[in-house]
Design a protein around this nucleic acid. Structure first.
Ligand SMILES: [Mg+2]
Length: 208
DNA sequence: GCGACAG
DNA sequence: ATCTTGTCGC
C-alpha cells in the first residue's frame, strides 16, 4: 500500500522544490542530435519507467526500462516526488548521452516554478523541457494561434502548441533551456507532439 | 472557505 | 495514470 504523506512531509517536499527552483538557469541553446524521452506507466502498485534515446533522422538508438513500486501518491504540484526517482534510475541505465531530455510533465510552468522536468534537469545537470497534455497553472494568451504563450502571474512560462486538427499540448523550459530555446525546439519538432515521448509512453506501457 | 489541479 | 467496447468520422 502507498500511504498518504503526512502534512509535514508535504511541506518538506514543497520546501525542497522551492529551493531547487532557485537553481534554474536558461543556459545556452544546445545543438540537438540525440534526444531522450522520459515517461512512467502504472499497473496497480507497480511503476514502469522508460528512457528512450532518439537520434535525429535515424530513429530510436537505445532504450532503458526500470520497474519499481509506487512510493508516493499522485499529488498535483508534487509529481516529482512520485516519478523522479524511477525516471532518474531509467536514465542512468543509458550508455548514450543525449543533448536534450524531454519529460512528460511541466517544467517551470508550475506554482513553485519547479515541475518534474525542471527537477530532473537540475539533478542530472542536463538541458530539459517539459511537455504536458494539460495545463497545471497559467492561462493561454492569443489561443487562436497555433503557437500561443502561457502566462502565469504575468510572466510567460511556456507555450501551448495546437496543431491543425490535433490535440493541444503544453511545453515549458525545464533546465538549461529558456523560452527562446523552447520555441526553437518546438519548430524543430515540426509543431508536433514529440515522437520521443510517444515512444517512451508506448514502451513504458508495453512493459507494465 | 471554495475550486482547480501535470501524471 | 488507469479502468474499458463499441462507435463516430476522416
Ligand atoms: Mg506519462
Amino acid at each position: 500500500m502507498i500511504l498518504e504523506p503526512t502534512p509535514d512531509q508535504i511541506i518538506f517536499y514543497q520546501i525542497i522544490q522551492t529551493a531547487l527552483a532557485k537553481l534554474y538557469r536558461a543556459g545556452k541553446e544546445p545543438n540537438i542530435k540525440k534526444v531522450c524521452g522520459l515517461d512512467v506507466a502504472y499497473r496497480n502498485e507497480t511503476a514502469t519507467a522508460a528512457a528512450v534515446i532518439l537520434q535525429i533522422g535515424k530513429g530510436v538508438v537505445e532504450k532503458s526500462i526500470v520497474k519499481g513500486r509506487s512510493q508516493f501518491p499522485y499529488i498535483p504540484t508534487l509529481l516529482y516526488a512520485r516519478e523522479a526517482p524511477l525516471l532518474l534510475a531509467a536514465y542512468k541505465n543509458l550508455k548514450t548521452t543525449p543533448d536534450l531530455i524531454v519529460v512528460d510533465g511541466h517544467g517551470i510552468a508550475h506554482p513553485r516554478k519547479a515541475g518534474l522536468a525542471t527537477i530532473i534537469g537540475i539533478l542530472l545537470d542536463k538541458p530539459t523541457i517539459g511537455v504536458a497534455k494539460r495545463l497545471l497553472v497559467g492561462e493561454v494568451k492569443e489561443s487562436n494561434k497555433v503557437l500561443a504563450r502561457i502566462f502565469y502571474k504575468s510572466r510567460c512560462v511556456g507555450y501551448r502548441v495546437k496543431p491543425e486538427g490535433s490535440k493541444a499540448f503544453y511545453i515549458s523550459p525545464g533546465y538549461k533551456i529558456g523560452l527562446n530555446g523552447v520555441k526553437r525546439i518546438i519548430q524543430l519538432l515540426g509543431l508536433r507532439y514529440p515522437v520521443v515521448l510517444k515512444e517512451a509512453d508506448r514502451i513504458a506501457r508495453c512493459w507494465s
